[in-house]
Design a protein around this nucleic acid. Structure first.
Length: 592
RNA sequence: GGUCCAAUAGCUCAACUGGAUAGAGCAGCUGCCUUCUAAGCAGCAGGUUUCAGGUUCGAGUCCUGAUUGGAUCACCA
């Protein structure tokens, strides 16, 4: 119903061109924009591009088209012209009917007409260390994008590809054997992923000590590297792992098990989840056969040493290694195999990889290789590339301890939320349990909004010295507005309703016109895979509502029609905040 | 060095993909709680959109060049 208004404009303007200027302007190409807030009206048509057709001045053209549209569309109350801008003002009747529809509708936002099956892979952690702030951004983005695509009407499968094998986990295993004295998460009271991460750092420490000892005893840096016993032992462990050595596998299983438990706790707390898991230990061999097949078909080539390569110089890229001379697989080999396995499992239309922009080259190459292999799913491979999270001192680096730990950060956010709430004396009348829940909701809400409101493609600078805000353009502001709206709905005996002939003031009309934008926002957010657009809409919703709230008494309005209308505005605002909050994975408290 | 990306208020970010007077928040300053939640609202101040050219009715947005910062070009993942 609602979107027909824009369509009507397009047809009316197209018709005006035909009748006034004898010019055929396809209605699809008519651009209707939102009117800049400093001018009267809700929708704008810019005539500048058509002056060649109309052969008259901008003002005259706009006036003429305006008159024509005004007489053909009941929804248009008035028009005004500023230079080449033709602004349309909409009748209260239209807004009221639209609002009435919103209040009755089951869901806000129009789903897509052509649903697809889409896999979204995100998180994809290594099992040698706990999650940090970079992973938090990845997890929140991946989850939110999944929510958005799913709400938009697609069939979404959330996947996590766990990098559970390789030299990195062997380092933790080796250090555990050397230094741990059989300690476990239970005996130590530490989360499993943190315990394993501790030994990853221990390895690095011991390795550096070994290196400096070797250099002190007169070796060069290169010699020291080659003579490292620790590194040799780690590699040896990897070989044993690949050979299926029982003892090594047992240790590997034990440590990884701890890590999974730790991750699961963090995921649950963050509010993200997955429909399916892939483990690299199961998929790393799959790509080999595809590479061999490609070699036989002449798509790839073999070098003298027996290694297999793909030549991408035709695409302006280099040659890329696909299989080592000793037959072991590399990252690309695994990803080729995993892509194929995913498709065999789900036969999806699109496969989205939520991975940092440092891997843009890798995914460009992956897609080209799959195309060369003639895989039907190659075209659907899509890298959702996002910017890194950086500290003032630069990139996050686990080994150097330059890292913001995910669990610590969530603890801090919880603690800050508690502090702020107590400062304001808002803990009265809350049970201890629901207080804990509220602090968690507020702390995590602030964190999620902070990370999701910025354009995913841009990098984020995080300064641990200034804490994440709870005031202004923040998650807290959104949550506060929600709690405020809920409070009013709770305390009213009157049911929200939209009477047919109420008059709208500017605040009310702004709010409705803002609701009107949501269809577009949802569509754009789904197409661009940008939770930031949802966050922006969320902020504007809260901003508009608060402004309205401050100017217009709701429960004490002049008559029941106005009370009903303002309650209806409150109701739809609350629903909008919940809906969009949900798309960002943010919980909305009823009281705060 | 090749390729790609970014640069907007003191700080952190917007700007509907070429439209009107570049907008928010934080920080600073002024007002508003005896009325539905002041984690709020209203306002002041803050800008040569890194620089130099170009394209056109019109450029933060497009093209060229420069400067600065980042990523990548691994038999790491």
């Amino acid at each position: 119903m609602s979107k027909d208004l824009i369509l009507s404009f397009k047809h009316a303007i197209s018709k005006a061109f035909a009748e006034l200027y004898d010019h055929e302007l396809p209605f699809e190409s008519v651009k209707i924009e939102k009117t800049n807030p400093s001018f009267e009206g809700s929708f704008t048509f810019v005539v500048f591009p058509y002056l060649r057709v109309t052969k008259s001045k901008p003002e005259a053209t706009a006036e003429a088209i305006g008159e024509h549209v005004l007489s053909s569309m009941d929804e248009v109350k008035a028009t005004n012209v500023v230079k080449g801008f033709l602004n349309f003002e909409i009748t209260d009747q239209y807004w009221i009917a639209y609002m009435s529809g919103l209040l009755r509708s089951e869901r806000l936002g129009k789903p897509t007409a052509t649903p697809e099956k889409i896999m979204v892979e995100y998180s994809s952690p290594n099992t040698n260390k706990p999650l940090h702030l970079g992973h938090v951004r990845n997890n929140l983005l991946g989850f939110s994008i999944s929510q958005i695509l799913s709400y938009y009407g697609h069939d979404v499968i959330k996947a996590n590809l766990i990098n559970d094998r390789g030299i990195h986990i062997c380092k933790s295993m080796l250090a555990y054997n050397l230094f741990a004295n059989e300690e476990t998460p239970e005996t130590n009271g530490t989360k499993g992923d943190h315990l394993v991460g501790k030994y990853y750092v221990e390895f690095d420490k011991a390795y550096r000590q070994e290196q400096s000892d070797l250099i002190d005893s007169g070796k060069t840096e290169e010699e020291a590297k080659l003579q490292s016993k620790l590194m040799a032992d780690a590699r040896d462990m990897l070989t044993k792992w690949e050979q299926g050595d029982d003892e090594t596998l047992a240790l590997w299983n034990k440590l990884n098990g701890w890590v999974y438990e730790g991750f699961e706790t963090s995921y649950t707390r963050m509010g993200v989840d997955f429909d399916t898991y892939y483990k690299e230990s199961n998929t790393y061999l799959l790509g080999k056969k595809m590479v061999q097949d490609g070699l036989e078909k002449g798509i790839f080539f073999k070098k003298e040493d027996g290694s297999i390569w793909v030549d991408l110089t035709d695409y302006g890229l280099d040659q890329k290694l696909l299989l080592r001379a000793d037959g072991t697989s590399v990252y690309m080999t695994q990803d080729i195999g995993t892509a194929d396995l995913k498709y065999k499992d789900y036969a999806m239309d699109r496969s989205i990889y939520v991975v940092g922009n440092e891997q843009e080259y890798h995914f460009k190459v992956l897609k080209l290789i799959l195309k060369k292999l003639g895989q039907p799913y190659a075209e659907g491979v899509q890298h959702m590339s996002y910017g890194m999270v950086e500290l003032p001192s630069g990139k996050l680096k686990t080994r150097e301890g330059k890292v913001v730990d995910a669990d610590d950060l969530m603890d801090e956010m919880h603690a800050t939320a508690k502090e702020r709430t107590e400062e304001q004396g808002k803990t009265d009348g809350l049970a201890k349990e629901s207080m804990q829940e509220l602090f968690e909701t507020l702390g995590l809400g602030a964190l999620k909004y902070f990370l999701l409101k910025v354009d995913p493609t841009k990098r984020i600078l995080f300064n641990p010295a200034d804490s994440i805000d709870f005031q202004g353009n923040t998650g807290t502001f959104i949550q506060y507005t929600h709690a405020r709206g809920q409070s009013i709905l709770r305390s009213s005996a009157i049911t929200p309703s939209v009477a047919e002939h109420v008059e709208l003031n500017g605040y009310e009309q702004n709010l409705i016109a803002h609701f009107f934008q949501f269809d577009d926002v949802l569509k754009e957010a789904a197409q661009q895979m940008s939770p930031a657009l949802i966050a922006q809409h969320l902020y504007d919703t809260a901003k508009n509502y608060n402004s309205f709230y401050n100017q217009c008494p709701i429960l004490k309005a002049e008559n029941e029609d106005i009370i009903g209308l303002r309650l209806a505005l409150t109701q739809v605002t609350v629903t909008m905040l919940q809906t969009c909050g949900n798309l960002l994975g943010m919980a909305m408290p009823d009281k705060m």
